[in-house]
Design a protein around this nucleic acid. Sequence first.
DNA 1: GAAAAAGCCAACACGGTGTTGACTTCTTGA
DNA 2: TCAAGAAGTCAACACCGTGTTGGCTTTTTC
Lengths: 185, 185
Amino acid sequence: MNRKVRYTKMVLRKSLLMLMRNRPINKITVKDLCADADINRGTFYAHYRDPYDLLQQIEAEIQEEIERTLRKRGGSTQPGTVDVVSELFDFIAQQSDLCRVMFSEYGDTEFLRQILFIAHDQCLQDWQQMMPRVPLERLEMIYRFTANGIIGVLQDWMRGDLQESAETVSRLVMQMTYGGLNSFV
Amino acid sequence: MNRKVRYTKMVLRKSLLMLMRNRPINKITVKDLCADADINRGTFYAHYRDPYDLLQQIEAEIQEEIERTLRKRGGSTQPGTVDVVSELFDFIAQQSDLCRVMFSEYGDTEFLRQILFIAHDQCLQDWQQMMPRVPLERLEMIYRFTANGIIGVLQDWMRGDLQESAETVSRLVMQMTYGGLNSFV
DNA sequence: GAAAAAGCCAACACGGTGTTGACTTCTTGA
DNA sequence: TCAAGAAGTCAACACCGTGTTGGCTTTTTC
């Protein structure tokens, strides 16, 4: 990757995140993007198919970074449950500029769902050991419930400019999750 | 409303729901819609601003119908909590053709969130009486958590063609909610 | 049965799309 | 260092969906 190519990609990335503060991805045209980035439209098409393609590449990088962060600490302890959530909250607090755009109002809601799915397998494995009597199907539903609950709280947290600490919020979320879960034991 | 107008609106509505099975609203053009409905494009603009306007009118009708249903039974008992959820699940099971399109994959995710917000005020009032020691701010977060959890389970339920009964699913959801909630008392 | 409402049709300018070819500028490696 | 080639610029293009218009036909209403 040339310096030129790096510059082009960097500036397009920056412009997309900028424009996404004011409108959703489907209202952002290639023309807008290139005007803001001061890049020729033809150059855009040399790297990306459309604005959505660019967005997905940004998302892929974020996801990779989150997974890397989780693996770093999660290697020794259990990455399945509590750790994952509080790490995720920390990550968001640190990268709040980026995350506020990607996860909030005009962001890609499906992407957050995808992120929460990282912990799925490990989590279900843990739960099955905890409560072998509860059928797997039901545990899947419970996972869906908590994952979506966490997403909702996360979005609200970011909309409110991260007023509470990451620890406070992740504790509340964990209490809801395990409080609900224990009622099945 | 003429018979002609009624026909036009009905057929456009039908076409939108049909097209939304295969792609999200932002990929549906006025042209597509009119071709499918066999309606002149000019006629569409006489009634709606764009496809999103048409979608919102459909959503408004659904919301009204849900609220009417809830008021009917909710008038005498407490509409705040359990009743609302199981009624909602029943409603979806009955209107599953419509709901599967509106709430699922290519539907408007924000709309479901709006639906769940109907119970917000009543629910928070109930919870405050139940647990006067928990600050309102925290109860708001808990509401956000459970509402989004329910949405997640609902979507999964519909994607899986409503295999479990409405009662089974709404019970599970309620157990998660109140199990989590009780851990705060 | 006439007035008015609703719909049909063709045409229009507009704007974003995706691609092309000829060109300049930058980068890399022998 | 300098030539090859990679990357970007620019102007132009046909294409397509948009939103609106005016003249016309059909349906509804009183």
